[in-house]
Amino acid sequence: MTLHIEGVHKAYGDRPVLRGVDLRIEPGEVTGLLGLNGAGKSTLVTIVAGLLPPDAGRVLVGGVDVGRHPHRARAHLGLAPQDLGIYPSVTVRDNLTLFGRLAGLRGARLRERIDKVADALELEKLFDRQGRALSGGEQRRLHTALAMLHEPRLLLLDEPTVGVDVATRSRLLQAVRDLAADGAAIGYSTHYLAELDTLRATVAILHEGTIVRRGTLAELVDTHGRAAVDLTFTERVPDGLDFGPDAVVRGATVRLPSSDPAKTAAEALGLLGAHGSAVRSVELVRPDLETVFLSITGHLPQEVAA
């Protein structure tokens, strides 16, 4: 089922967050939605689910306008919001059963779906535990499972791997890939770029209210990725050095984007003079999604996540 976002604007009070977002996600496609904290990823996802009206623009889910026919549009939509939403005082099984029944599942089919998502997210051993007796990562898994029970044709996952351990993360990514292989369109917001590779996802970068980059990983890296040199100092970047307008300083590291990193490294070291002894490492960085993201936003995604 295709997701079609057209010219969506949204402001909270007089503070604009989305300023004309256009985005299309095709059936079978996983799209990673990237952006800094506060970029508006959750706002966009909430608008797509019809929980928040946009100020302008529209969202079509399988051709159905979410604003006009929210109930019809939601029939095939699953959303795991960023805020955990589970029932704390009943068991994992009761949580799953409720949402299965609400989706019209019953009897053997309901049990089958519960077993399927429980297997995908490793919830079997937790069936009889109350929601509040789960760890943070376990709660996140249940929370995500509730959105996948009814095999949605459009699945929106807002930072599903926050606080989830490595083993579960790979199962979750596998489950998402399986859904996409079955033809579901998937919107996946995250701060962990490596996940997008695993998901074979396409990328949409949300920055300052619009989608500023859109394409496959390879396309973005080819067209927008620049190699770079990372100069890391032992304590902090010394004052009074001019590395040029493209340099990005993060903590004790200066990143110098460059199409010829070896040459740039040599030049930079020459520039250091007396500060040369304060350098801890020099690293040549190949272009990848991180360098794309950094060149647009001035931050690395893992800094955002931390």
Partner: peptide
Amino acid sequence: GWHTWARLQVAGVR
């Protein structure tokens, strides 16, 4: 408070 109201809405409950 549990953030489940929104989930019920997305699940199609009026």
